[in-house]
Nucleic acid binder design. Structure first.
Length: 157
DNA sequence: ATCAGGTCTCAAG
DNA sequence: CTTGAGACCTGAT
């Protein structure tokens, strides 16, 4: 694997890889079980792990981390809107798009480009006809993670 | 500037 | 259920 992380922690659905730069979280990735664990290399990574662990234990826990979102202003607006969705609630791409004055497809694009899940809860956005897709597929490990997270927050499928 | 593709959606066959 | 067209943003050409 070419990607390096500043921490990699265990989770019920696999692993969470954390990347930090200049004291800001710049990326979190869902990794499959069995991936190599890595102790946090700095204070921000350690704090991120702590809050992630707390969320994995209690879905109502909120995040308070220094994030550095890349991407276009549009995507940042989408991500900010995502963070305002309460735990246990879900919106459709269409509804979220309506709030932002756009349509569903670009919202899906922004969700797919979300670099910091589950701090930015892209998993709380589903399609109008079911769970929707995930990276072009309706199965695979990322999809299982999405399902786990929704179940974790008490969302009935 | 143009083109293809994306975690979509709705209507029609 | 499958198909087709619509709508908007991003990244590559």
């Amino acid at each position: 694997m070419t990607t390096r992380f500043d921490a990699c922690m265990s989770a019920p659905f696999g692993r969470l890889g954390i990347r930090v730069a200049d004291g800001h979280v710049v990326r979190i990735e869902y990794l499959p079980p069995g991936d190599e664990l890595l102790a946090p290399r700095d204070a921000v990574s350690r704090e991120t792990c702590r809050q992630l662990a707390r969320y994995l234990d209690d879905p109502q826990a909120t995040f308070d981390l220094p994030l550095r979102p890349g991407g276009s202003p549009f995507r940042q607006r989408v991500w900010e809107a995502l963070t305002r969705i309460p735990a246990g609630e879900v919106l459709t791409y269409g509804e979220l798009a309506q709030q932002l004055g756009t349509v569903a497809r670009p919202v899906g694009g922004a969700c797919g480009a979300n670099p910091i899940p589950p701090v930015v809860p892209c998993h709380r956005v589903i399609s109008a006809s079911g769970l929707g897709g995930f990276m072009g597929r309706t199965d695979g490990h990322p999809m299982q993670v999405k399902q786990w997270l929704l179940a974790h927050e008490g969302v009935a499928l």
